[in-house]
């Protein structure tokens, strides 16, 4: 079966859109949410939970972020960037592990 290149292309299009397309949050804030790095309190707490322990997100996390000046549309974008960012790191880690595992096999296959 040929490589399903449409999968990677569709994933890249999603990542590119949320990071580089038009948004209410700045591209820098979206990049920081995506990487879960460099955001200031209190929004960093919300974004950190989205990335690593999303079941612990509460109304209070959103309320604190809004009180610090973020609009709902900005938080909508930043939460999405955090979720896409964390899952993208997993996707890339899995593909890298697969590449390493299959490169090692190639000399046998080539003979």
């Amino acid at each position: 079966m040929p490589d399903n290149d449409k999968l990677r292309a569709a994933h890249r299009a999603l990542v590119d859109r949320v990071l580089n397309g038009e948004g209410r949050a700045s591209a820098q804030q979206r990049a920081r949410a995506f990487s879960n790095e460099g955001l200031s309190p209190p929004v960093d707490a919300l974004i950190g939970k989205v990335a690593t322990r999303p079941t612990q997100v509460t109304e209070a996390d959103f309320a604190a972020a809004k009180a610090s000046g973020f609009s709902e549309d900005q938080l909508f974008e930043l939460v999405i960037c955090a979720a896409v960012g964390q899952s993208t790191r997993m996707y890339e880690a899995g593909l890298a592990a697969l590449a390493e595992a299959t490169v090692d096999e190639r000399p046998d296959n080539a003979t």
Binding site: H11, L46, K49, V50, A51, P54, T55, V57, V79, I80, A82, A83, V84, Q86, S87, T88, M90, Y91
Partner: peptide, 12 residues
Amino acid sequence: AAFNTTDRLADA
């Protein structure tokens, strides 16, 4: 990847 994204959004 798709469901690690959707799960996070569902819970957040």
